[in-house]
Design a protein around this nucleic acid. Structure first.
Lengths: 217, 217
DNA sequence: TTTCAATTTTAGACATAACTAAAATAATAA
DNA sequence: TTATTATTTTAGTTATGTCTAAAATTGAAA
C-alpha cells in the first residue's frame, strides 16, 4: 500500500498530465502540491523506484500504467465519497471537497465498492467529472460550459464550476440541479447572455451564470 | 488537531483506565498499542505537554478531562462508523472494526454529526457498546452476558462477543439480531445451558452461545 | 534491609517527508 | 556562441514516531 503523500503525488501528476499531454515538470508538481521543487524530486525518485512513474533527471515525469491505475483508483474513491456526502448526507457543494480529500485515502476496496453500489453506481461526481470504474476505466469527458453552447443545442447539467452559496441558492430557486436538462433557446452575442429552457420554463441568464454550469451533451 | 498516533494513544489509555480504575502503566499502554515501552514514554510526554494526560515519571498516566473528552470523541466516531458500515453498507460484523479504525481519524465534526443523524442517532454500536454524544457523555454500560442472567430475567440483545462467521450464521437462522428481546425461560446449572424465548419461539442454547451474547437489561 | 528482577526512562539511531541553501543543468537572449 | 536566467537536483537539517541498548528506578523476596 502507498502512503497518503505518495497517493497525493500520483493524483497531482495525473491531473497535470491530463492538462498538458506530455511529461510534467518538477516545478509544475510543486505548484500543484503546494510544496518545494526539492521535495518533489525526492518523492518522484521514490515513486520511480516503486514503478509508479517514469522519471529521468531534468527531463520530467510521466505516470506508468501502474501509476495511472493507482491514481485512477484514488480519484474513483474521491468522487464516490463526494457523491455520498452530497446525496446521502446533504452537504453543500463547497463543503465536500476537503472531507473527500481525507476519505479518499481510506484503504478498503470492499468499502468503496459497497458505497458505489449503495449510491446506485453514479457515473459523475457533483462537479460533473466522470467516476472511474473498478478497473480504472474512465469515460471520455464530453462536458462543456453552458456558455459554449449555441442556440438550439441542449444537454444535461453534470456539474458546477463556482460553488459560492449565493450561486447555489440561485440554482435552487431556478430548480436547476445535477441531471436537469437544459436547452439554449436564444443567445446574445453582444454580452453572452442567454435564454434557456429548464423543465417547462424559459428564462434569461447572464454570461456569468452560463460560464459556471457544466453540460453533458 | 491531533495526529492519528496521538489519537490512538488516547483511545488506548481510555480503554485501559476503564478496566482498572487507577493510572495506567507504560507497559500496559505498550501492550495495547503493540509498540515498545520506550516509544510510549516519548508519546506520553508529548501528550502531557499538550494537556491531554497527567504523567509523572515512573508513576503511570491518567487522562485529563481534556484528554478524556478527546478520547470519547474518537470512540464516538469509531462506533458511529461501525453502525454505518453494518447497517447501511451491509458489512459483516467481523469486517467493520479494521475499516472503522481508519475512518475514526477523519477530521470533521460536521461529518460525524450528519452521519449520526442519517443513522437515526443510534445509542449502541454493533458490539453493544454505547455511543458517546457530541459532548462526550456516555451511557453507563448496563450490559451483561446472556450467560450471567438467571431464570425469568430478560433484556435486549445489544451486541456479540464472538464474530466468527458460523456463529453469526447461527444467529441469523435463529432470527436473533441486535435489538431482539430475549428472555431466559430455564437454566441448567450443571452445564450452563439455557432455554430462551426469542419472539414467540422457545429453544435450547448451549453455555458457549450464551457467553457470546451481550444483553442490555 | 539488602538484593534481585521487573519496569521505566534515557540516549542515540533510523525512516519518512518535509525544508533551505548551494550546485548543476537546461533554456533563452545577446 | 557565450552569458544570463530559470529550472532542477544535491547536500545537509528538521520534526514525527518508531526502535534498540543501556541506565535508572521501583517493588518484591530473601
Amino acid at each position: 500500500m502507498y502512503s497518503k503523500s505518495e497517493e497525493n503525488y500520483l493524483k497531482a501528476i495525473y491531473h497535470l498530465e491530463s492538462i498538458a499531454k506530455h511529461g510534467v515538470s518538477t516545478n509544475g508538481i510543486a505548484g500543484e502540491m503546494e510544496t518545494k521543487p526539492s521535495s518533489v524530486t525526492d518523492m518522484v525518485k521514490k515513486l520511480a523506484d516503486k514503478g509508479l512513474v517514469n522519471y529521468v533527471k531534468y527531463q520530467g515525469t510521466t505516470l506508468t500504467e501502474k501509476g495511472k491505475k493507482t491514481a485512477l483508483g484514488i480519484i474513483r474513491k474521491h468522487r464516490i465519497w463526494e457523491v455520498f456526502l452530497l446525496e446521502t448526507l446533504d452537504f453543500q457543494w463547497d463543503e465536500v471537497h476537503e472531507i473527500a480529500e481525507q476519505l479518499e485515502h481510506i484503504k478498503s476496496e470492499e468499502l468503496i465498492n459497497r458505497l458505489d453500489t449503495f449510491l446506485g453506481n453514479p457515473q459523475y461526481d457533483p462537479h460533473g467529472d466522470p467516476i472511474p470504474d473498478k478497473n480504472g476505466n474512465i469515460k471520455r469527458l464530453e462536458k462543456k460550459l453552458l456558455s459554449e453552447l449555441n442556440k438550439k443545442e441542449q444537454g444535461i447539467l453534470v456539474g458546477v464550476k463556482e460553488t459560492n452559496t449565493d450561486f447555489l441558492k440561485y440554482l435552487d430557486k431556478r430548480r436547476i440541479a445535477i441531471g436537469t436538462p437544459i436547452k439554449v433557446i436564444g443567445k446574445e452575442f453582444f454580452d453572452g447572455s442567454m435564454i434557456i429552457q429548464v423543465q417547462k420554463e424559459q428564462f434569461f441568464i447572464s454570461k456569468k451564470i452560463a460560464e459556471n454550469l457544466f453540460i453533458h451533451i
